[in-house]
Nucleic acid binder design. Structure first.
Length: 408
DNA sequence: CATCCACTGGAAGATATGGCGA
DNA sequence: TCGCCATATCTTCCAGTGGATG
């Protein structure tokens, strides 16, 4: 048996490429930082804080800049005795209503043991509890709501919080909301009254271009990687791939980190472009499998129907045919089949996740409809399905058919 | 030019689950 | 226990859509 051995030829401090790493300096965001600081100025001056709304794609530095500036703010505020600043941060990714965000905030503020459950109360009751907790803290309170777009149009909390003082719900506490959103459209779908207040100060974080990404990578590499273990062109490649896709520093750093891990496992001397290419496809596959793992039973059956059609080389494929396939899979797994409209909903979800793609078919008197097909490699799809629903024999059959047809 | 197909996508209503306070 | 409350997931209903067809 091979022994565990420490491999240290490539990374010096791999964490510096990770999600939680806070660099000492934020690169390429000077303008945004300046504007952000201005927006936070009232906190130092002792006035009611501005509500601030940040938007931009994932990985363009919204959260990083916020963490960085609020740390600084908390340090600097210590110099003034008359200001009592508290910061509450909450990631709303898994919370899809104001109600749930409010519950989560209350639970954050309460000592462990005193948490309230996530359902059962009327919404206003939860808001009242939240106000009580905020009053108990007092002073200036900044509430950071990361990925706040996941609450959709159930935005009552965003209406309530900025007005709490005016409505007499808060007295000693001055509350400012900092909303962070990955979704540009989120701002527009908000209630106009919410836009007025929450978006008092708006900051846009544009995607990084390839040059900026390269600079960011270079500054992290100094800390993270040992000298001379990166081939020429590797950083360029990471930057280019990420710039073309999302303009996300997160993505560029992930590519480099995973590429480095691959290089280490292959006992290479340095990270080469080929390692980055491999990292790219592995990350893509992970993204898809992540999406598939979170599907409900019927979501999986819907996907499996497409996979099965793909194995028979019958994709792209219309809803009607997928519905038949889906019904027979339901029968095999002794699950009650849903209506066709519901299958259509699941297919739409799968399309949003980038697992399926659909092409419109406009064939006149014979109707307009979508033709669906897999938008991920057949192999990744069927791998992610392997552990599903007493359907192992059916899945094996699909595999056999696929092999016969040389699919995948 | 009206009609038709085969859906698509929006909206409202039903059902089930789990939790609250009285 | 009962009447509420919030949520997730489905079902039902229906107004489009737009090229082909008569």
């Amino acid at each position: 048996m091979r022994r565990f051995e420490r491999k240290q030829n490539i990374f010096r401090n791999k964490d510096a490429l990770g999600e939680s790493y806070q660099p000492e300096r934020i690169e390429e965001r000077d303008e945004e930082i300046e504007e952000y600081m201005n927006a936070l100025q009232p906190v130092i001056d002792g006035w009611e804080p501005n509500n601030i709304f940040l938007y931009g794609n994932t990985g363009v530095g919204k959260t990083a800049v916020t963490d960085y500036l609020l740390d600084r703010l908390q340090d600097d505020v210590a110099a003034y005795d008359d200001i009592d600043l508290s910061i509450i941060s909450l990631n709303c990714k898994t919370l899809n209503s104001s109600y749930q965000v409010a519950v989560e905030l209350v639970n954050e503020l309460r000592p462990s043991g005193g948490e309230i459950s996530t359902t059962g109360y009327p919404q206003q009751t939860v808001f009242k509890k939240l106000y009580q907790e905020l009053e108990a803290i007092g002073g200036t309170i900044l509430i950071v709501l990361d990925e706040v777009d996941s609450i959709g149009d159930r935005d009552e909390l965003l209406y309530e919080l900025p007005r709490a003082r005016a409505n007499g719900n808060l007295d000693s506490a001055k509350v400012g909301v900092i909303g962070i959103s990955n979704d540009f459209k989120f701002r527009d779908q908000l209630d106009p009254r919410v836009q007025d207040t929450l978006c008092e100060r708006e900051l846009q974080f544009p995607p990084y271009d390839a040059t900026e990404l390269k600079n960011i990578l270079e500054s992290r590499v100094e800390v993270a990687v040992t000298d001379g273990s990166i081939d020429t062109g590797v950083l360029q490649l990471c930057a280019a791939l990420a710039a073309r896709d999302s303009g996300s520093a997160r993505q560029a750093l992930d590519l480099l980190r995973l590429g480095g891990e691959i290089a280490e496992n292959r006992e290479a001397e340095m990270i080469k472009e080929a390692h980055i290419e491999d990292a790219r496809s592995q990350l893509e596959q992970e993204r898809v499998e992540e999406g598939m793992r979170e599907l409900t039973t019927h979501g999986r059956l819907a996907l499996l129907a497409v996979i099965s059609k793909a194995a028979k080389e019958e994709t792209p494929c219309r809803t009607r045919d997928l519905y038949e396939e889906y019904r027979s899979l339901c029968e095999s797994s002794e699950t009650d089949a849903l209506g066709q409209r519901s299958l259509h909903n699941h297919l739409s979800d799968l399309r949003m996740l980038g697992i399926l793609s659909a092409h419109e078919n406009r064939s006149g008197s014979r109707g307009n409809y979508y033709n669906y097909e897999l938008d991920v490699p057949f192999t990744s799809a069927i791998e992610a399905m392997s552990d599903v629903l007493h359907l192992t024999t059916e899945i094996d059959t699909i595999r056999d058919i696929a092999a016969m047809n040389n699919v995948g």
